[in-house]
């Protein structure tokens, strides 16, 4: 029933490369006006999944429905409802921002008469109306990212699929992009969002799936996912000394359920009653390293991610 009304849905999606299973039995459903986050460590199968959802890659198994239209059977009708924002700046640097939008608008079948007006509308939407006639190659990273999103909006898609849309963007542009995406969702657009920035996903998405080793290991609202961690806190420690040896000791402390190195001298632990465990943690590394800073964080998505995948998002 959900597939009938979903802006984007997939069932049993699978892709193999020889013996390697890249994606296995992935299913998700996004309704209009819903923002759905897809989180996973590198190599988890996010990009392969997205490639199948936008029709770049043919799945070995499963089906994709876009607004109820089968992507495999009616690719053009289904694709007309998808706006795809690739991870790279998929635009022509020698053209201006406006020329890039006009090119993709024409290519995606916008009527000749309404093309210029629609390009102006999108330029307004991405906040680049006054800079539209400069060469794209001379734009800042944030401006390019905004045109990258704008090119996917030209044909008025029902679902927008964004693969890491804010990589290499300054904070001001990131805020402008996220504000713009929230407005689109409020206007009824469905959104599928992948990012390495957990705080972006927490801000934009009302539902999140965590994918690991090609399978969706958890799917739910932020509250539902965080509750999976139970009462565990995240403990961030900065160490001085033999960090590798200290890391081994920390993993073995009773009450620590997950542990990950997050930098040269920093580790992240998931521990039941983390704040009460601090003295044991400090004692455990004695002789190998000294704890120079410690922070205990209440359960969040990051903690859930660590709990489910045994790794941090930016590993």
């Amino acid at each position: 029933m959900a597939a009938m009304t979903a802006a984007l849905a997939c069932r049993g999606l699978g892709k193999r490369y020889g013996d390697l299973v890249a994606v296995d039995d992935v299913g998700l459903s996004i309704t209009p006006g819903q923002a759905y986050g897809l989180l996973g460590p590198n190599g988890a199968g996010k990009t392969t999944t997205i490639s199948m959802l936008v029709g770049l890659l043919r799945p070995d198994a499963g089906e994709v429905l876009v607004g109820g239209v089968d992507l495999a059977r009616e690719p053009l009708r289904a694709k007309a409802r998808i706006g795809y924002v690739p991870q790279e700046i998929a635009l022509y640097p020698e053209l201006t921002g406006r020329e890039n939008l006009r090119f993709f608008g024409r290519l995606f079948g916008l009527p000749r008469r309404g093309l210029a007006a629609r390009v102006d509308e999108v330029l307004d939407l991405i906040g680049l109306a006054d800079r539209a006639d400069g060469k794209l190659g001379a734009y800042s990273g944030g401006m390019k990212r905004r045109v990258n999103i704008g090119a996917a909006l030209l044909h008025r898609p029902q679902v927008l699929i964004l693969d890491e849309p804010t990589v290499g963007v300054d904070p001001q542009s990131r805020k402008a992009i996220l504000d713009g995406l929230e407005r689109l969702v409020a206007d009824g657009m469905a959104l599928l969002y992948t990012s390495h920035y957990m705080e972006e996903v927490e801000r934009v998405c009302d539902r999140v799936a965590i994918i690991d080793h090609g399978r969706i290991v958890a799917d739910g609202t932020r509250r539902e996912l965080v509750s999976l961690v139970g009462g565990a806190d995240t403990v961030e420690l900065v160490l001085d000394g033999d960090v590798a040896a200290a890391f081994g000791k920390l993993r073995a402390v009773e009450g620590v359920s997950e542990a990950a190195r997050t930098g040269e001298s920093s580790v992240r632990l998931l521990a039941d009653g983390g704040r009460y465990l601090l003295p044991s943690l400090i004692t455990a590394v004695e002789g190998h390293a000294t704890v120079t800073a410690a922070q205990v964080v209440e359960p969040d998505l990051e903690a859930t991610f660590l709990h489910l995948t045994g790794t941090t998002l930016r590993d």
């Binding site: 936008v54 029709g55 770049l56 053009l76 009708r77 694709k79 007309a80 998808i82 795809y84 690739p86 991870q87 790279e88 700046i89 998929a90 635009l91 022509y92 993709f104 290519l107 995606f108 079948g109 090119a151 996917a152 044909h155």
Partner: peptide
């Protein structure tokens, strides 16, 4: 390499 080909292939054209 630019990614523009994937953008075209993901768009509503043959």
């Amino acid at each position: 390499k630019l990614g523009t080909l994937d953008r075209m292939r993901a768009g509503p054209l043959a």
